[in-house]
C-alpha cells in the first residue's frame, strides 16, 4: 500500500488498464481444491495478486451449546488477513473490516448451503488471506465455495464472485488494488449461476442508475468466468482418472 505513484494511469487512450488488461477482462485466476490434510474441505485461490487459503470443518458439534439451532445447522465464517498480506503490517486482531467481510461472506454462502439437513451442528469456514491485492472478499468467497463442496456439505449451487467497478469514467471488470484506491466505484458481486440469484452485492462509490445496471451485468460476466474455474478445480480433484502412484 506504500510507495503508490501519484499519477497512476488507470486507463490509457487505447482502453488498456494500468496492468495491461482490457476493460472487461479479469485477472488470472487459479483454484486448487483439497490442499489441506486436516480440514474436511479446503481450497487455495490465486486471483491476480490475491493468495487466499480456505479451510472448512463440519458439519460438527457446536460449542458453546447455546449457539446451536435445533432446526438447522449454523454457518460460521472467519475472514482474516495475515500480518504479511499487505505492504504495511496488518495487526493480527480482527479489524472492523474483517468482521464485516466475515459477515458478508457468511450471508453470501447461506442461501447456497443446505444447513437444514444438519440440525444442531455448525459448519466453520476459515479464510486466510496470505497476500492481498484488491478484491479479496470476492476471491475469498470463491475459495470458500470450493472448500465447502470439497467437504461434501450439500449445496444448492456453488457461489462465484467477482467485482466490477468504475475507474477513469469507464465501467471495468475485476477491480485491482490501484483501481480501488484511485477509482470511482467498486462493486463486489456474489452469484449462484444455476439458480440465477445474487447473494452478495455491495457498492463503494457513486454510480448512476444506468451505470449500476450495466455494472451488475459486467460483474455477472466475470462471476460466470470464475464459476467455470471453480468447477474445473473440483473436477480436477474428483473426476480426473489420471494415473496416480
Amino acid at each position: 500500500m506504500g510507495g503508490r505513484e501519484a499519477n497512476v494511469v488507470l486507463l490509457d487512450e487505447n482502453g488498456i488498464r494500468s496492468d495491461g488488461r482490457k476493460v472487461n477482462e479479469t485477472r488470472k485466476v487459479t483454484i486448487k481444491a483439497g490442499v489441506l490434510k486436516n480440514a474436511n474441505g479446503s481450497a487455495y485461490i490465486e486471483f491476480g495478486g490475491n493468495k487466499i487459503l480456505a479451510g472448512v470443518f463440519g458439519p460438527r458439534d457446536v460449542h458453546p451449546k447455546h449457539m446451536s439451532n435445533p432446526d438447522t445447522g449454523i454457518l460460521r465464517v472467519r475472514y482474516h488477513m495475515e500480518p504479511f498480506s499487505v505492504g504495511e503490517r496488518k495487526k493480527p486482531a480482527p479489524s472492523r473490516r474483517e468482521i464485516e467481510i466475515s459477515k458478508v461472506i457468511k450471508e453470501a454462502l447461506e442461501p447456497a448451503v443446505m444447513l437444514e439437513k444438519f440440525p444442531r451442528t455448525a459448519v466453520d469456514v476459515f479464510l486466510e488471506v496470505l497476500q492481498a491485492d484488491g478484491g479479496t472478499r470476492c476471491a475469498a468467497l470463491d475459495a470458500a465455495s470450493v472448500a465447502l463442496a470439497d467437504a461434501g456439505i450439500p449445496m444448492r449451487d456453488l457461489v462465484c464472485a467477482c467485482a466490477s467497478g468504475k475507474a477513469a469514467d469507464t465501467l471495468i471488470l475485476d477491480v485491482n488494488n490501484e483501481e480501488d484506491q484511485a477509482g470511482q466505484a467498486d462493486m463486489p458481486i456474489g452469484y449462484m449461476p444455476n439458480l440465477g440469484k445474487i447473494t452478495l452485492l455491495q457498492l463503494d462509490g457513486v454510480l448512476t442508475a444506468d451505470e449500476y445496471k450495466k455494472c451488475i451485468e459486467l460483474g455477472l460476466e466475470g462471476c460466470k468466468q470464475v464459476y467455470e474455474i471453480q468447477k474445473n478445480a473440483l473436477r480436477e480433484k474428483y473426476f480426473s482418472s489420471g494415473d496416480k502412484d
Partner: peptide, 16 residues
Amino acid sequence: MKKFESKKRHVLPGDF
C-alpha cells in the same frame, strides 16, 4: 468414467 448399464454422470453441486 461411464458405466454401460446405467446413465451415471459426474456432477457437481448445482448441476442439472
